[in-house]
């Protein structure tokens, strides 16, 4: 991690990414529980990053595809955020949409 930090400080992005990739690949050499914990952290970081991408208007499917996670992971996370409350998300009056849905079942 020290090497990765040094690369980042020297603005060597490629070097930083390569070092981090090597670090993740070597995780299988550490204790199984620690390995699991570290992987969980990476997984959560991916989901958090994905929710930010979706917040910027990219669809859930595309975001999940980009980060290599499932849509289940992403939806489970974004439901607890305020993404759906953005003012632009409102399109059709809820009563009108509900009336239309009712009409389908008559």
């Amino acid at each position: 991690m020290e090497v990765a930090k040094e690369k980042l400080e020297n603005n060597d992005i490629q070097g930083f990414e390569d070092t981090l990739s090597k670090y993740i690949k070597n995780l299988n050499k550490v204790h199984i529980k620690l390995q699991q914990s570290i992987q969980d952290v990476f997984e959560q970081a991916k989901i958090s990053k994905a929710s930010r991408i979706h917040e910027h208007g990219i669809s859930l499917g595309r975001t999940a595809e980009l980060l290599g996670i499932t849509r289940f992971d992403l939806m489970n996370y974004i439901g607890k955020t305020y993404i759906a409350d953005a003012k632009e998300a409102f399109t059709i009056d809820p009563e009108k949409r509900l009336k239309f849905a009712r009409s389908l079942f008559k």
Binding site: G57, A89, T91
Partner: peptide, 17 residues
Amino acid sequence: ERTMRLLIEDPIKLKKL
């Protein structure tokens, strides 16, 4: 899903977002 709904119903709102 919000993006797909906006694309169909109001793509300009998606642009603004």
